[in-house]
Nucleic acid binder design. Structure first.
Lengths: 192, 192
DNA sequence: ATTCATTGATTGCTACGGGCAATCAAGTTC
DNA sequence: GAACTTGATTGCCCGTAGCAATCAATGAAT
């Protein structure tokens, strides 16, 4: 059960970096949970912008997420539409104000720090973090929320020349280039 | 103001890793803030275990931290002693129960994931994170809370053979080996 | 087709944590 | 000694999170 001092220090550093980033988040109209929701909505594909998916992503509860989204809606940063494929479900999208808010995301400050600090080692750092997240998700039995194109249900280039050249074999839906790079609640990593 | 996609992804990964770690923290007697406090107290040297220092470390307020520590004291995980060097100040220490609780720290799960995922690349990953934290602290104008022996006030091996071979030139206090590796609220990185 | 279980979403309730400001005590400066 | 700073605590208020109950829609089973 023991762990090396180096790994423990790395975990502490991640914890601390996140806290510093979070300290900047109180500014403006948003609290940390609301920033997380905005970030998620800005990256999730159209099948994944529901309260349930967001709750899974945040490892939170639907009730809590429902209130977070209601608050954002009231302030005009997201818009709500009923789902066409499931009468129970609703979908949220960033409004223009929401898109604008993303440019002020406090996480950008952390990203700048990473860029400055890592320099040419950035790809290696990124790789280490990616692998770690994969482990953490596997341990938690959580959904991966990876990019669409890395999914086992992704079929590339089924309709060459079309605006939606790719396809999702799970949902049987056409996918654009942008879709394929968005994160998806249904994503299951392709076996490598 | 713009930032590379790779750096942004790295920031998002850090954010997400921290959230997954935090999701495990609700278990047991502690909430996230209380875990942070316990971690800090387990690592801070004897000059730094005060509410004010902890508030700085957490980028929080003294009022909030005061309540967090009061709660931990009530539950018996920390003990309070009046400071001898400053009549206004109080010092907190982990109780035996607090020490035991650290063995259940949910951050250990993240550390294990890092160890498993990074493997031989761990030193590089650690280095990247360390450098990033340095940048983030510089940007925030926060205190560094680095290890004592990395401080410009640290004087190594002043008393060879003694149990407190080192010395702090700022506080004029003798330091043991263990002291020198603890984090300190007064730490200022030595110029490199 | 009817029933049963599951899933999606919301809301009342309660508790707790966080920030702010005021207060008190103890150092520090001049 | 007066004025200022620093350390800590507490009252107040708000927002958020969790829990559980509720309602609606879907899917599965017989």
């Amino acid at each position: 059960m023991s762990v090396s001092p180096a790994a423990l220090e790395a975990a502490q550093l991640i914890d601390r970096l996140e806290r510093l980033a979070r300290a900047g988040e109180q500014v403006g109209d948003f609290n940390p949970a609301q920033w997380e929701a905005l970030r998620y909505l800005s990256r999730a594909n159209r099948f994944s912008r529901t309260p349930a998916a967001l709750a899974d992503y945040l490892v939170s509860t639907r009730g809590t997420v429902s209130r977070t989204l209601a608050s954002l809606e009231e302030k005009g940063y997201v818009t709500r539409t009923a789902s066409r494929r499931d009468g129970r479900s609703v979908e949220f999208t960033l409004s223009a104000a929401g898109e604008r808010a993303m440019a002020r995301d406090p996480l950008l400050a952390l990203a700048r720090d990473i860029e400055e600090a890592a320099g040419p080692a950035l790809p290696d750092l990124l790789d280490g973090l990616r692998r770690t997240l994969r482990c953490a998700i596997a341990r938690n039995r959580g959904r991966a929320f990876g990019a669409c194109y890395t999914c086992r249900h992704f079929r590339a280039g089924i309709r060459p020349g079309s605006r939606t050249p790719h396809h999702c074999a799970l949902l049987d839906e056409p996918l654009s280039e942008a879709d394929s790079r968005a994160i998806c609640a249904e994503q299951e990593p392709a076996v490598t």
